[in-house]
C-alpha cells in the first residue's frame, strides 16, 4: 500500500509537469573555449590581375616568412590580411596607401590599447573597411567585436 501511495504521488507529479519548466529551463552550456585561430586563405582570384599579383606576394610572405616568424601582429586582421582586404575591397592604390598607414599605426606602440576596440581573439580590431574615404567609421575602444 505504501508503495502504491508513493507511486500515485510520483506519477501525478510526473504526469502533469508545468509546461513553463521546459520553456524557461536552463540551456545547455558548453564550457569549452572557442578557438580564435583562423586559417589563412591562400586562394587567388585571377579575375583582377593586379589583385592577383598582390595576393601572390602576400601568399609568398605568409608561406616563407610569417608562418615561420610566428603570430606576432597585435591587430586583427593582421597587417598582411589587412592589405589583402583593402586591395580586394577598394583598389591597389587605395589598398597600398591604407596598408602603409596601417603599418605606421602598427609601429606606433604608445597607448594603442586604449584607442582600438578589442577583438574576441584578444587582438586590437582594426579592419580595412573602417578607413575607406566615404565610409570611415569610429568604433569605441570599449567594444568587444565578436565576429571574424
Amino acid at each position: 500500500m505504501k508503495i502504491i501511495s508513493v507511486l500515485v504521488l510520483l506519477l501525478s507529479v510526473y504526469a502533469f509537469p508545468q509546461s513553463e519548466k521546459m520553456k524557461w529551463g536552463k540551456s545547455d552550456y558548453s564550457y569549452s573555449i572557442e578557438s580564435t585561430e583562423y586559417g589563412r586563405d591562400y586562394s587567388i582570384n585571377f579575375e583582377n590581375p593586379v589583385n592577383a599579383v598582390a595576393k601572390s606576394f602576400i601568399n609568398a610572405y605568409w608561406f616563407l616568412i610569417s608562418d615561420l616568424d610566428g603570430d606576432n601582429c597585435p591587430f586583427h586582421p593582421s597587417c598582411s590580411a589587412f592589405f589583402v582586404d583593402a586591395v580586394e575591397e577598394s583598389n591597389i592604390v587605395t589598398g597600398t596607401l591604407l596598408f602603409f598607414d596601417r603599418f605606421t599605426r602598427d609601429a606606433s606602440i604608445v597607448g594603442r590599447y586604449n584607442r582600438y576596440p578589442k577583438h574576441k581573439s584578444g587582438r586590437l580590431y582594426d579592419p580595412a573597411y573602417l578607413y575607406y574615404p566615404g565610409s570611415a567609421a569610429y568604433i569605441p575602444p570599449s567594444k568587444v567585436i565578436d565576429k571574424e
Binding site: 596607401l97 602603409f100 603599418f103 573602417l130 578607413y131 569610429y138
Partner: peptide, 24 residues
Amino acid sequence: AFFYAGNIYGSAVSANIYNQRVDY
C-alpha cells in the same frame, strides 16, 4: 614615398574618424 603618401591619406581619414568620435 609610400609611407609619406599613406600618411597623407591616413591623416585625412583620421580627421573623418575624429569627427565621428566627436559625434558618438
